[in-house]
């Protein structure tokens, strides 16, 4: 099973009622403590270690203090984000606090109102849609599943 198989799969309730589609797959990434960035961080250049080493390390330091970057280990599946429609472009606004540039986030949020998180334990079956007329991948939720808020922690 691949993440790409789950994305855009139809989501069915325990009784087979269509609920929407899988918008995203939520994972928990193990993070490691790491005082030093170590070698190789960024878009770094080969073949020039000798002459421009110093500049390189400055480069790395300047960058890593800006964008988020973690040392990571294993990635465990936590659950599925279920939305009313395919995520399409610029997905993710409904799960973050970003509000600018107006009006892009506002429009995307409107399109994805009603997205919720379902725990992986509450997924009863994943069907690959190989059977005739099944119409692609689908996911069936277990009885008593909970609709959790979709925000990223």
């Amino acid at each position: 099973m691949n993440v790409g198989d789950l994305l855009d799969a139809r989501v069915l309730g325990p009784d087979g009622v269509p609920l929407g589609v899988v918008v995203d797959v939520r994972l928990a990434l193990e993070t490691r403590d790491e005082p030093d960035d170590g070698p190789g961080g960024r878009e770094d250049r080969e073949d020039r270690e000798d002459s421009e080493d110093r500049k390189d390390s400055e480069h790395d330091a300047a960058l890593s203090s800006r964008a988020r970057r973690d040392a990571v280990g294993g990635a465990v599946v936590l659950g599925l984000l279920v939305g009313p429609r395919r995520a399409g472009s610029y997905h993710g606004y409904e799960r973050t606090q970003v509000r600018s540039p107006w009006p892009v986030p506002q429009i995307v949020r409107r399109l994805h109102r009603g997205t919720y998180l379902v725990r992986w334990q509450d997924v009863a079956a994943v069907d690959d849609g190989a059977a005739a007329g099944a119409g692609g991948w689908s996911v069936r939720l277990a009885p008593g599943y909970a609709e959790l808020p979709p925000e990223l922690g």
Partner: peptide, 12 residues
């Protein structure tokens, strides 16, 4: 440094 797991969405 970050502690505990980092929650990410695969597509995002």
């Amino acid at each position: 440094m970050t502690h505990g797991p980092r929650i990410v969405d695969a597509r995002l």
